[in-house]
Design a protein around this nucleic acid. Structure first.
Lengths: 64, 64
DNA sequence: CGGTAGTGTAAGGCATACCTTACAAAACAC
DNA sequence: GTGTTTTGTAAGGTATGCCTTACACTACCG
């Protein structure tokens, strides 16, 4: 699963920690998602898309 | 997380088992999602939306 | 009645999405 | 070059998504 979290986070000028705070997860969770170590839960994907003001399909793309 | 999987599956005339086959999960996984026992992974949510020809936001709704 | 299809549900297992704590490196200030 | 912030990463723990197997129930079908 590809994602544009890092890019969209940068647009908002947030650190990983700040983004994590906003959606209620640790900064390590954000880091792992950005680095492709694992995919977020569906609930978390919704929260990320919401912070970015985007649709889930714009933030994430299944890589198959 | 609310979802309309059962409803959309019915529109396609598929059994839980048939839907599971199409997206590569067991019928119990479909059942658990329909009954709200747990939320699908993001990857599975994408596959479900794809089978239904809908956006993820149309199939799932975070209940908060 | 016996057979099939669909669904609900439980047990036990594995993989992974999160957590906390901790340390090291990198980036940026001054 | 020192200090601060940010990021990367590891270890160990908990929760959950998904698996297989198995059984019970309903509905329909002959």
């Amino acid at each position: 699963m590809e994602n544009r979290v890092r890019e969209m986070r940068a647009e908002l000028g947030l650190s990983q920690g700040e983004l994590g705070e906003r959606i209620g997860v640790s900064r390590q969770a954000i880091n792992a998602i950005e680095r492709g170590k694992h995919d977020p839960s569906l609930a978390l994907a919704f929260k990320l898309a919401s912070v970015f003001g985007r649709r889930i399909e714009e933030v994430f793309r299944p890589d198959a």
